[in-house]
Amino acid sequence: MIKRGDRKSVEDSLENQAGVVLLGPRQVGKTTLAQDIAESRDAVYLDMERSADRQVLEEPDLYLDEQVGRLVVIDEVQLMPGLFKALRGQIDRRRRQGYRTGQFLLLGSASNTLLHQSAESLAGRVSYHELTPFILSETGADSISALWLRGGFPDSFLAKNDKTSLAWREDFIRTYLERDVPAFGLRIPAETLRRFWTMLAHEQGGLLNAAKLAGNLGVSGQSVARYLDLLVDLMLVRRLQPWHSNAGKRLVKSPKVYIRDSGLAHALLGIETQEDLLGHPVVGGSWEGFCIESLITAAPRGTEANFYRSSAGAEVDLLLKLPRGGLWAIEIKRTTSAKVTRGFHIATEELDVSERILVYANDKEVPGQGGVRAMPLMSAMKRLASA
């Protein structure tokens, strides 16, 4: 059992709010985490994928009135969008009865859909948390190669060998395409969406070129936007937006797109072993995406993430605006040399950043030129976590 770093923050929120909404893709460990939390208190667990549990909540107030004082865990809550109004009434009534915190733990697999459904009904009543696949601070620095290759989904990372891990990820992708996407009522051919997802994997970390993708797929630009919105909503793809605060510069306006879990990107490309990965053209983009996801996850809640690129060649792979102030510029390279590009120096001077960091493939933290500090990924994550 690998201890999840999110457990304490979820439990702290339950001590201060009536409910917590825990977001994350399927198979990422939301249910396991919720059940671990439930074991430490008086709780009841309901799964909206089970018809018997859905029937229990067809008249939600009749059932939930009997559970006052207990933690009610509801899994895949986005499958019953009408439930949110009932939950608002339950929370408000319980407050009047003196039960103000720790009432509901809601688990969902689609972020934007669930946030939209719950925003009006539960505004000010719940806290939102995202559970990602395993990150390096949870698995340990020695596991970095395996985590990068296999990704952080628990069953993939903990598989007995690389072949078994790849088979799990291929089944995961097939299930999402054939079962989960249709469950959202979206009529997108599974093969078309798979081709689109694979194209994104080939361009890992590249600027979004919707017209090129549409032409290769034989669909409209609107369809490409819809496919991308879906994968972002399912928390499988990250759309990293460009930094646009400097109106006087000619800046890139297209977002960068990453498959969020490196293991899924590798499965889409048929990459099974470390040797396959190191010899593949996507290796640089894959490493960059792996580091970016790790750093964003390690950063304090409320951190804003962007990249920066100007037409003159100034570039920063990852800009993090921290909630308590400070703008961190991070360069990511699969190299043991503690040197950054000239474009990085130009960009950091233009942006007046507070921290300049190079994440590189060495295990030593050393000072570089121009105020840049080179360090391994784990060290950068620790610095962010304590910022």
Results as ranks from 00 to 15, higher is better:
108 G>F: 07
191 E>G: 02
178 E>K: 15
102 G>V: 06
153 F>S: 04
173 I>G: 00
160 K>H: 12
107 L>Y: 03
148 W>S: 00
205 G>Y: 05
189 P>N: 05
91 I>E: 00
163 K>Y: 12
106 L>C: 03
223 S>E: 06
229 D>P: 07
177 L>I: 09
213 L>F: 13
142 D>S: 14
98 G>H: 01
91 I>K: 00
219 V>G: 06
226 R>A: 14
195 R>N: 06
199 M>V: 03
104 F>D: 00
167 A>Q: 12
170 E>K: 15
221 G>D: 05
194 R>M: 06
93 R>K: 10
167 A>E: 13
183 A>V: 00
150 R>H: 11
154 P>S: 02
117 Q>T: 06
210 A>G: 11
138 E>W: 07
106 L>A: 03
153 F>G: 02
103 Q>R: 09
193 L>W: 01
189 P>F: 11
95 R>V: 00
146 A>N: 14
115 L>E: 05
125 R>E: 02
173 I>V: 15
105 L>R: 03
163 K>L: 11
172 F>V: 07
96 R>K: 13
200 L>M: 14
199 M>N: 04
166 L>F: 08
151 G>Q: 06
123 A>I: 09
229 D>V: 06
231 L>T: 10
127 S>D: 08
100 R>D: 02
142 D>W: 14
145 S>W: 15
117 Q>M: 14
152 G>K: 04
126 V>T: 12
185 G>W: 11
166 L>K: 01
220 S>F: 08
123 A>L: 09
181 V>K: 14
156 S>H: 03
139 T>L: 10
133 P>M: 01
162 D>C: 07
182 P>E: 05
190 A>I: 01
219 V>K: 08
196 F>L: 13
99 Y>Q: 01
113 T>M: 14
124 G>T: 07
146 A>F: 10
151 G>N: 06
196 F>S: 06
95 R>S: 05
117 Q>Y: 15
104 F>K: 00
163 K>G: 09
145 S>Q: 15
170 E>M: 15
156 S>C: 05
154 P>L: 05
131 L>H: 02
124 G>W: 10
142 D>A: 15
97 Q>N: 07
197 W>M: 15
219 V>Q: 04
200 L>E: 09
106 L>K: 09
180 D>P: 15
214 A>C: 09
175 T>Q: 04
147 L>C: 00
136 L>F: 12
141 A>C: 11
167 A>H: 08
221 G>Y: 11
189 P>M: 08
90 Q>F: 10
127 S>R: 15
132 T>R: 15
148 W>L: 14
114 L>V: 03
220 S>W: 12
210 A>Q: 14
127 S>W: 13
128 Y>V: 13
217 L>M: 11
226 R>N: 10
207 L>P: 01
202 H>S: 08
193 L>G: 03
157 F>P: 00
223 S>L: 12
207 L>C: 02
146 A>H: 15
158 L>W: 00
103 Q>D: 05
132 T>Y: 10
189 P>K: 04
194 R>H: 12
180 D>F: 11
131 L>D: 02
92 D>P: 03
